[in-house]
Simulated scan of single mutants.
Amino acid sequence: MIVTATPGIKQIVREVWKPLALLFVWDVIVTATYFIIPFTAPSLPLTLFGSALVLFLGFRSNSAYQRWWEGRGLWGLMINASRNLARQARNLLPEEAREAKRAIVLHQIAYVHALRCQLRRQKPDTDVTRFLSKGDPALARANIANGLLDGTGRRIDDARRRGWIDTIQQAAMEAVLVDIANAQGGMERLKNTPLPVQYRFFPTLFTHLMCLLLPIGLVETMGLATPLGSTVAGLMFLAVLAIGDDLVDPFDNSPHDLPLSAMCRTIEIDLLQAIGDPAPPPLAPDKAGILW
């Protein structure tokens, strides 16, 4: 996620130079053709088409931002639930269950890192394995994060069978695991369910068509300034289209997505400090102003 007030110049140039160059070349071709073979284009159809396209793109961008914000809300719930689980393990389990406390907390840290990797379509990294014992059965599961959550549930049940907690305390801890599982399910729904194809195909098609028609409708009025004016106007349409593309998948590991690594580090710090272990520093934005 870009956390600076404005994206860096290099980032902007990297994203827009190709469509800008293509737009400008097309605008120059249309302008040159107009002065060689003058033509007249009706302005009303272009105005109506542009107005309809703006509404279409605005609705699509709002839908994409709603997905992005829902993903952020679900990760906020994950952070809170992880803190609650660590606090319950620390306060409800007796001193003799010290190793069980640590196991629950460390497995929750491994869980959020595993979930981060799954949402980004990455293999489990060292942030997952360093909190687990060698050969942990959860690593053999298709859904490693869910396997780790199941393992935490078994540890809580084992604590109840050993008499360390009662059934009411077990139910309270299980309720937190349910919140965690519900948050994971919401994230997987966002990841595995793209916007309907109509929201992805038609806005792209109509935006590109609009960019092709712009210089034809503007050249009679703007003359030699058409390449500049049409390119800037086309860039605005392409920018709105790109905003929707950037936000539609909040877990895609791009500069515009949610900072999952930073949020996992926040959970790691809070949970390690809850059991008195040394914790790493928070993640900071890189030189480009991007927090991953």
Rank of each mutant, 00 (worst) to 15 (best):
V13S: 10
K101M: 06
E268K: 05
D150A: 10
M263T: 06
H256K: 11
T193S: 14
K101R: 15
I275G: 06
L190I: 09
M187G: 09
A89V: 05
L214T: 10
F59I: 11
A279L: 09
S82I: 04
K101N: 02
A86H: 03
S61N: 12
L224I: 02
Q184M: 07
Q118H: 08
P285S: 03
G217S: 08
T4H: 15
Q122S: 02
A142P: 15
V178A: 06
P38Q: 11
F206A: 14
L44K: 05
H256W: 12
I180W: 08
A239L: 09
W26Y: 09
F237V: 04
M236G: 10
T6I: 10
E174Y: 09
L190T: 02
F131S: 01
S230K: 03
L271R: 02
Q66W: 12
L241F: 07
T207C: 09
E268M: 07
P285A: 00
L209V: 07
R72I: 03
M173Q: 14
M173V: 12
D136K: 06
A142S: 14
D166I: 02
A242G: 00
A41K: 13
I290N: 14
L148K: 04
P203N: 03
A288N: 15
V248P: 00
R83G: 10
N143F: 08
D158F: 11
P203F: 09
I79S: 00
F49I: 13
G186T: 02
K10E: 08
A181D: 05
P281W: 07
N62G: 12
M78N: 05
A110M: 06
V219N: 00
V30Q: 13
R14F: 04
P203Y: 08
R141E: 15
F131Y: 07
I12A: 03
R154V: 01
G223E: 05
R116A: 04
F59G: 06
F237Y: 12
P94I: 05
F201K: 07
S43E: 14
T221M: 08
P281N: 00
F201A: 09
A183S: 06
L205M: 08
K287Q: 11
I2D: 13
W17Y: 14
I269R: 01
K10V: 15
A86K: 03
F206K: 14
I156F: 04
A145P: 13
D249V: 02
A239V: 10
A181N: 07
R67D: 10
R72D: 06
P19H: 14
F49N: 10
C264F: 02
A274V: 04
L212V: 00
P282S: 07
L209F: 13
E174K: 10
S63C: 11
L139Y: 06
A171R: 15
D179A: 13
P124A: 00
A183F: 03
T31D: 01
G223M: 06
V248N: 03
K287C: 00
K101W: 12
R155T: 02
L209A: 10
V128E: 03
L283C: 10
E174D: 10
A284T: 04
A32N: 13
V54A: 13
P45F: 15
T221F: 09
T167K: 04
E70M: 14
Q184G: 01
C211D: 08
